[in-house]
Design a protein around this nucleic acid. Structure first.
Length: 271
DNA sequence: CGGCCGACCTGCGGGC
DNA sequence: TGCCCGCAGGTCGGCC
């Protein structure tokens, strides 16, 4: 589920209920990718001051540090106002109770993570390796070109590299390349500055469109208020193998790249 | 250093 | 109908 738009939609939905609330307690029922890195009791009593996002990471700013949340492949967060929380489901592995209600992380595959980072002055190592934010207006095509122009790897796996651009996953990499008319197999070093600028524009337009749609919904994604995103109904290529291209009607192709499925149109996307 | 590959998990849909 | 295989929105770490 969780690429930049889904995480951002979740962040916006959580701002109102969570900001300013005070933590009662925290528990991790089943281990996620890593241990929490602190004793759950140490979080009790702290106020949640802000909610940020970096790439696909959601950042809960507490008084004495930061709770870093990653949704992995199958994670979703839900908010339950005070007294409205149903019994815990089998995949609700993390729970944060506050004086206003509780936040739960549902993650069947447990690729997600919740980490405590006490030293807020220096960024957590996981965040330190992230590339620029695609929606940051200060990020220019030239910067993308610099990150890519010396690389032999194909542009599609390069877009998935979080050090090149933060927050892009399989759906939006495929969609942005379609929008830019670029063949996903094109080596990074074959892309001109001009095409990198076009690619960044296309990526931004794709992400903005997904934000407006409330993100994508595949099997288990639900924004925290329970509403479903509907971007996948607008997808031009992702998950559409064999179906006609919405632009030229040629069948959409599917191929593996770096052990992930790439969807593209052989006619509309060129090297 | 760059790039490939396995590992980590569970669930679901398709094919036989 | 039922079982088995392959695949799924991610990414870290080990290896060449």
């Amino acid at each position: 589920m969780p690429e930049l738009p889904e995480v951002e939609v979740t962040r916006r939905a959580l701002l109102r209920p969570l900001c300013g609330s005070r933590v009662l307690d925290v528990d991790m029922a089943k281990a996620l990718r890593w241990p929490l890195q602190c004793t759950p009791q140490s979080l009790a009593g702290q106020r949640i001051e802000d909610i940020g996002r970096r790439g696909k990471y959601l950042l809960l700013g507490l008084e004495q540090g930061q709770l870093i949340v990653h949704l992995g492949m199958s994670g979703s967060l839900r908010w339950h106002g005070a007294g409205t929380a149903p019994p815990r489901g089998p995949h609700e592995h993390f729970r944060l109770r506050t004086d206003r209600g509780e936040l739960r992380l549902n993650d069947p595959r447990r690729f997600g993570a919740v980490l405590w980072h006490a030293d807020a002055r220096t960024p957590h190592p996981l965040l330190g390796r992230l590339g620029p934010e695609p929606l940051d207006p200060g990020f220019e095509g030239q910067q993308l070109w610099r990150a890519v122009h010396a690389r032999r790897a194909a542009i599609k796996p390069l877009l998935l590299d979080q050090a090149v651009v933060a927050g892009v996953g399989n759906i939006y990499a495929c969609e942005a390349l379609f929008r830019a008319g670029i063949d996903p197999r094109t080596p990074g070093r074959k892309l001109s500055l001009r095409r990198c600028q076009q690619l960044l524009d296309a990526l931004r337009a794709t992400l903005e469109q997904a934000l407006c749609a409330g993100g994508s919904t595949l099997r288990d994604f639900c924004s925290s208020d329970g509403a479903q995103g509907h971007f996948q109904q607008q997808a031009m290529v992702y998950g559409r193998a064999g179906q006609p291209c919405r632009r030229c009607a040629a069948p959409i192709a599917q191929m593996p790249q770096a052990q992930r499925s790439t969807y593209f149109c052989r006619h509309c996307q060129r090297r």
